[in-house]
């Protein structure tokens, strides 16, 4: 499972982790029913607290993306809504554009120009 965290992102860390896991599941590296790596290992690799990862996993369970089963760990229940994946990417794009001084209307204009 490939996970990317943006170190400049100001949102709560568990939201960012949930987004990273949602993206990895949406990209199809895990099929429905596949088991995710243990939270402890995800946390260790990302260099963050295991409770933060657990909170992100619980959020994704509440969204219906993941399923927790006793003795079987965490597995994929359904593919995340594509709209939520695109939304996350747009949010990242807008924040990056903001760093360069682009307002939201500028970005919308840019999208119109290139499409």
């Amino acid at each position: 499972m490939l996970l990317t965290l943006d170190l400049n992102d100001l949102r709560p860390l568990h939201e960012q982790v949930a987004e990273a896991i949602r993206r990895a599941v949406a990209e199809g590296s895990y099929a429905l029913g596949d088991r995710l790596p243990p939270a402890r290992d995800l946390a260790e690799a990302l260099g963050i607290n295991a409770n933060t990862v657990l909170r992100a996993l619980r959020d994704l369970r509440d969204e219906g993306v993941l399923e927790f089963r006793r003795g079987r760990g965490v597995s994929v229940l359904s593919r995340p809504d594509p709209r939520s994946v695109i939304e996350e990417k747009l949010r990242a794009l807008l924040s990056e554009a903001g760093q360069y001084g682009y307002r939201h209307d500028d970005v919308i204009e840019l999208i119109r120009e290139i499409s």
Partner: peptide, 17 residues
């Protein structure tokens, strides 16, 4: 290849049992 940007941390974790 995976695009790596400065200011981002990208890791890969997997398991088998």
């Amino acid at each position: 290849t995976i695009p790596l940007r400065p200011g981002q941390r990208t890791v890969w974790v997997s398991s088998v049992r």
